[in-house]
Design a protein around this nucleic acid. Structure first.
Lengths: 140, 140
DNA sequence: ATTGCTGCAAATCCTTTGCAATGTA
DNA sequence: TACATTGCAAAGGATTTGCAGCAAT
């Protein structure tokens, strides 16, 4: 979905996009990366209050515009809600997050789901930690 | 590794197990489950200070006696450092955590690791959310 | 005597909340 | 007018820290 479609989609859901919400959304549309709440509060500190940032992040998550993702040992991050199912690669060195899709993983998930008898899996989170190419090259 | 071996292992690492540490460890050895810091603080509140609980949890994590695991939207939990590699099943209803091992998942992980060119995976976290048998039966 | 561990209280960080004021349909 | 959204300040929960005293080697 393109950026303008995201906005259309919001309106079709009857959601109101006022100034504050637009400014938060623009940050995400501008770089398609993930941001933590404290990071956004800092970026927007001259434009709106901390409470407004938090309230609108929650609003976006409730309305499935943003996903909240919780990586190991970090404060939650937000990213544009995934249209395609994907997983995260987190560089332990530079902390950059990239995403992947893997057919073999999804197949294995299906197998696992069927294997398990006394639990019904409805959702899953796979996270991969390691080193991105840049950090691997610029090794210290 | 058996419980007494865990303690031997600690000593062989030159780690000191004083009273406080022993009491914390006993909670984990007693039920082999995961506990959050606030939960442990509560359980141990007549025996030691909150700061001691936190300091020793960090001590155990640094020394790889406990693992810290961060589930979606919850405060971190601690569990005995995995002797066998495993993953977590989290019941969305009662929040109980159980663990699984899956050959197919590990195989898929290997395939994925090889597929990916510009990132070197060293660790991974797979979490499964859903409903446990009990909650599925006692449906509301 | 030196080093490490503890309790206590205060501080810090992240997030939420109450309330009065403002904006918008 | 009615309802949603904001800013501000305060509160809340989890975790860390400074410091003085105690424990152990």
């Amino acid at each position: 979905m393109s950026d303008t479609n995201i906005i259309k989609d919001l309106k079709s859901k009857g959601l109101k996009l006022n100034n504050s919400r637009m400014q938060i959304l623009e940050l995400f549309l501008g770089n398609h990366r993930s941001h933590s709440a404290p990071e956004l509060v800092e970026l927007l500190k001259m434009k709106m209050d901390r409470a407004t940032v938090y309230r609108n992040l929650n609003f976006f998550v409730e309305n499935k515009i943003l996903d909240q993702i919780q990586l190991q040992g970090e404060t939650p991050k937000y990213e544009l809600a995934a249209l395609e199912h994907h997983h995260h690669l987190i560089c332990k060195h530079c902390k950059k997050i990239s995403s992947i899709q893997s057919k073999s993983l999804e197949n294995a998930l299906e197998t696992t789901t069927n294997e398990i008898k006394d639990f019904t899996i409805t959702d899953h989170v796979f996270e991969f930690y390691g080193l991105c190419k840049d950090c691997l090259n610029n090794e210290e």
